[in-house]
């Protein structure tokens, strides 16, 4: 699974970090930064949660 973050959409709600703190961290402005596009095995559910929790719909996944 791959995960994509559209930084132009991110407004720093922080829901992705709450869902998968190992995959989404923050820059000094509080906007999300993706740790890696490759989702480690076992982390798919947490990343999918980040997708459905992001109110700005800035996160997508692909196989």
């Amino acid at each position: 699974m791959k995960v994509h973050l559209d930084s132009s959409m991110c407004q720093g709600h922080g829901q992705c970090n709450m869902s998968a703190p190992d995959m989404f961290i923050f820059d000094e402005q509080g906007f999300a930064v993706l740790v890696s596009e490759d989702v480690p095995s076992g982390r798919e559910a947490a990343v999918s949660l980040a997708v459905v929790r992001c109110p700005e719909r800035a996160i997508t996944t692909s196989p």
């Binding site: 407004q11 709600h13 459905v52 109110p55």
Partner: peptide, 13 residues
Amino acid sequence: RAPNRHIGFGLGP
């Protein structure tokens, strides 16, 4: 609740 993309804190810039 999931998903819960509520806008209680606003949305956008």
